[in-house]
Amino acid sequence: MIPFEYLRAEDAASAVAAVASRPTAAFLGAGTNLVDHMKLGVASPELLVDVSRLPFDEVEPLPGGGVRIGAAVRNSDLAADPILRSRYPAVSRALLAGASAQLRNLATTGGNLLQRTRCVYFQDVTTPCNKREPGSGCSAIDGYTRYHAILGASSACVATHPSDLAVALTALDATVVVLGVHGERQIPLADFYRLPGDDPHRDTVLEHGELIIAVDLPDLPFAARSTYRKVRDRASYAFALVSVAAALDVADGSVRDARVAFGGVAHKPWRATRAEEVLRGAPISDESFLQAAEAELAGARPLAGNEFKVPMARNTLVAVLRELAQEEAR
């Protein structure tokens, strides 16, 4: 870890100004991912601007029925929030599926969204990695691929995004509120993350110096019937092999509307729009759910060593939709 300056931000604008004006500066939330990377030599900021105590620590109702989540709200507090638990349970469950309780007590909403891939080659500076060191090559593509992408990858990068929270928020049409030197902008989460393409070193569309200050969840009544299911190699405290966030609106034996996203399968949380299209209007049945899953996964291109993720994602989605449909029926 290289020496760095530490600055505790007084307010958001000065924090943004401090980071934006210096290419080697970075925001510090709880640091549960950034400090990890600094120890490994993956990240080497020269200035850390601590934004964890800025007054973005509330969950508030939005006019129009949505909810605004402050970027500094701790993962555990957000998961336990009564509004989230009742109206957006997929978000609570996704948070509770991530990391461990003692990390969730520290980790912030904004930091969670900005955590970087767990690709083992990304994390080991002695191996080539295009995401860490553009142009050095991808070690994963012909290497250890168990946790790697089956959708939307490129020949430059096959990494996956590790956040659980982001998957649930993506499914439920959340928007990220960002403050930059030129003011605020709102970015739908679906557009916030990038696919790797030729420049996998960029995870998101954020410009340097832009700070996440909040996440907005829109009013979505049927999100009260939503859930998050994470399939992993340990029963707890492990990153996803495959995860599914879904919400289902059911009436008269058929699907009125649906929201679906996959985690663990792509460089970003994978909003399953094709699956949603198939589901809308379809009768509630395993066949419908299977068709939806297969429509989405038709484009899957697994790597040698992670072929299992295709049936795993398919079956998990079917199981989640079945569960939500049964829940609705009760």
């Binding site: 505790r8 510090l28 990390l103």
Partner: peptide
């Protein structure tokens, strides 16, 4: 409860 290994003391 919190892990302390990734928390910077200065913060």
């Amino acid at each position: 409860r919190a892990t302390t290994c990734l928390a910077l003391a200065v913060a």
